[in-house]
Amino acid sequence: MISRRFFFSFPIFFSVYLLQEGFVTQMRLPVGGFSLILIFTLAWASMSTPEIGAVTGFGAGLLMDLSETAPGPLGHWTLVLILISFTVSFLSYGDDHARANPLSIVFLVVVGVVGAQIAFALLGLLLGQALGNIVQVLFICLGTAFWSAIVTPLILPIISRLHALVFGTASRI
């Protein structure tokens, strides 16, 4: 069962990763743009159990760490996404009101995206990474939240369908 889920999940996430690296990053959207893989992962995690959420975060974080644009060491995004994905899925799992309401998922994803960025920045500081001006960091966080709030509702139905395809129709919004 687990291998089947992984077998289906991996190409999906890899495709999203390719989309992110090949197209979304090339758009050079203003105020930071958005991270498709981050939104996808957190939305996916919000529909999954905390264990699946953590594993999803691990896989997606590993992919993000492999990106050329990732400034930190390998494992940086992995650690952040394990924790954030776990938290997001922990908050939504078992709460039928939250899971049934797309707005709650959008909210969770947007908060999760901002939380992931802040956690990434803090961990980066601990690892000696130069982040630059704090105002600029906050500006990018807000910009990403803005874009995520726009993009998440648009792709949520697709994520929901794919999640249902992998985990069963019961999880579909």
Partner: peptide, 15 residues
């Protein structure tokens, strides 16, 4: 599982 994943990521960072 969570602990294993976190430890793995920390291991990757260290490496």
């Amino acid at each position: 599982l969570l602990i294993v994943l976190i430890v793995t990521s920390l291991f990757l960072i260290t490496l």
